[in-house]
Design a binder for these strands. Structure first.
Lengths: 342, 342
DNA sequence: TTGAAAGCGATACCAC
DNA sequence: GTGGTATCGCTTTCAA
């Protein structure tokens, strides 16, 4: 007794419809209703029909808090991104969520872009929901974070970067390679002056440094560089461009560590009536898609963001379902999309 | 017995640390540990210290599935948006999440932008997590959706639109008013030809219709309109602009139902070497922020997206904490930001 | 201030 | 194919 929601409940009262209510109405046991919902083929067609009618009649909505607790599987996947308000990450997450929802999982998001919230705190909060897997952005985590993550004993996928020693699985690309490839591109075009508008972000700085490395090795020394705060915005692109132009940069190429910055840089150059790309060319990063369509003057480094989401989802699902994981290190690469003509 | 995680467990085994483990180590009862975590001021300082040490030593992470089940409060707030990959919504959600996380709530997102997933299905899935409140985008819901939502018996906030009969609380602005205001602006500038690039979305279409209504009343009849698929993109902006220009639109103003579309329209006009805004002026919508900074030629309708998130969070929290809700209908208004000079 | 016992609503295990 | 019973890990209630 006390299983039905009558007012005679000794301790708590509840108006919500439960599995037991449905079971009683259908004239079967609770576990049968559970099976009818989760594994319908293990239930006789007639029983199934009765149960479905009872569910419809009552408007029953399963309680996944209870289900997750009992089955030790929350059907929740956590994802930690620097900012959902950044298209670069949100488009990845969108495909990630979509793939997972097909398999019956929901994604719960954590935003690591607030400096006032410690990453460890965020991970802790997220882990308290007992996700069945976790998606991380980047491969740098504090030791206490690593411990928390490892102790959770769930599949982990790190993304947007590569490391020889992932926590579990990693899906990304090599930022140093990007820098080197951009440097080679710049050299091939024989630009004699090179500007940098770089976001203050570990991976962006790495891309800039590696570009610079090759350039200086090749004797290109007319460099104008500025660092702007993350997250990137068109506004900071304008500001950055303004700075290096005022420092004396008047021709050549500007490498921006994001397409958003690049757009701002383009706007600043346009507003000064400087010809693009003849006098100043611009290179972006990250493939905001529209770049290629609307700004033919912009060369950019294309990253297949959807693929990151897809591969991350696939790898996580494989792990959860204990299927073999093909690769623990998935390099999705990148490509330089050259747009010079107008 | 069977409360500790030994291998003698009759039914299930578990490696995870539980409240009981911590309690045993701290030499107190489980409920005391629970209090130490949730209501530390109801626990003696000495006891608190012992408990905290035990938590640190074990690396205990509370299980909110269990906590939520027992307390009938998941500390989860659901939000349904058309697309997280759309800055307009993601910036609202970001502030919404931030405000709620300060109060100890986490946001779980549902993406309603996939036509193959029924809204009702999505709401059902979300409700199975037993959120303590729900954020909806728009005020149009199918009857079955309304029933589900109402049956859940939790605070609801509808956003991005207004209605005299909200499900619970509504935070938004009047799209018809926007259309009328834009029409008046257009009339005041005495444009004789008006183009429309409109997304195929209920609220966008409403803004367009209401603009048109006033214009035709005032005798402006040289109209060129095209509808492009949602979600909006720069690419569709270009396509839309191309269409109406090819239909014969050669001067005047184009009203785009989003700033993203407006950017594409601007790019198309620029590529044709048409002067902006002298020959063709462009009006956007939604305040992508950068519009004002980088495209001085673009007039736009500014919506305080962050405020929507803030007000929605505040209202929901008030309801949950059973504090009085000041207004059930919150009109955040809008403003036209005119940028004509270059 | 602390604790014992009884749930919360579901699923796992084992029988039938 | 179906059901009984014992949990899952936590909080509520009530009592000390």
């Amino acid at each position: 007794m006390n299983k039905n929601n009558t007012t005679t409940d000794k301790h708590r009262s509840s108006a919500a419809i439960t599995l037991d209510n449905v079971a009683k109405i259908a004239g079967v046991s609770a576990i049968t209703v559970s099976r009818a919902i989760n594994t319908p083929d293990k239930v006789a067609p007639e029983t199934l029909k009765k149960v479905r009618e009872a569910i419809d009649k009552t408007g029953y909505v399963p309680n996944l808090l209870a289900g997750g607790l009992a089955s030790r599987s929350s059907k929740l996947i956590a994802a930690i991104v620097p900012s959902i308000a950044n298209l670069v990450y949100s488009s990845t997450i969108r495909l990630f969520s979509k793939s997972l929802s097909k398999a019956g999982y929901q994604v719960i998001l954590g935003d690591s872009g607030y400096p006032e919230v410690l990453e460890e705190e965020l991970v802790r909060t997220i882990l308290s929901r007992r996700p069945d897997g976790i998606f991380l952005t980047g491969v740098d985590h504090s030791p206490s974070c690593r411990n928390l993550l490892l102790a959770a004993n769930i599949p982990i996928v790190e993304t947007w970067d590569l490391t020889p020693s992932p926590l579990d699985i990693v899906v990304g690309f090599n930022h140093m390679d990007v820098g080197h490839a951009v440097a080679k591109f710049i050299l091939s075009k024989k630009y004699n002056k090179v500007g940098f508008v770089t976001a203050n972000d570990a991976r962006a700085l790495l891309r800039q440094r590696s570009t610079l490395e090759i350039l200086s090795q090749s004797g290109v020394s007319d460099i104008y560089a500025t660092t702007v705060p993350a997250p990137t915005s068109l506004e900071y692109g304008r500001i950055g461009a303004k700075q290096i132009i005022e420092e004396g940069f008047d021709s050549g190429v500007i490498f921006c560590t994001s397409d958003t910055l690049a757009q701002g840089v383009l706007a600043e150059i346009q507003s000064r009536n400087i010809s693009i790309p003849d006098t100043i060319a611009v290179i972006g990063f990250g493939d905001q898609v529209f770049a290629a369509h609307t700004y033919p003057a912009l060369t950019t480094v294309r990253i297949d963001r959807e693929r990151i989401g897809q591969e991350a989802a696939d790898a996580l699902l494989a792990r959860i379902q204990k299927r073999p994981v093909k690769n623990k290190i998935i390099d999705i690469g990148f490509s330089i999309i050259e747009r010079e003509s107008t």
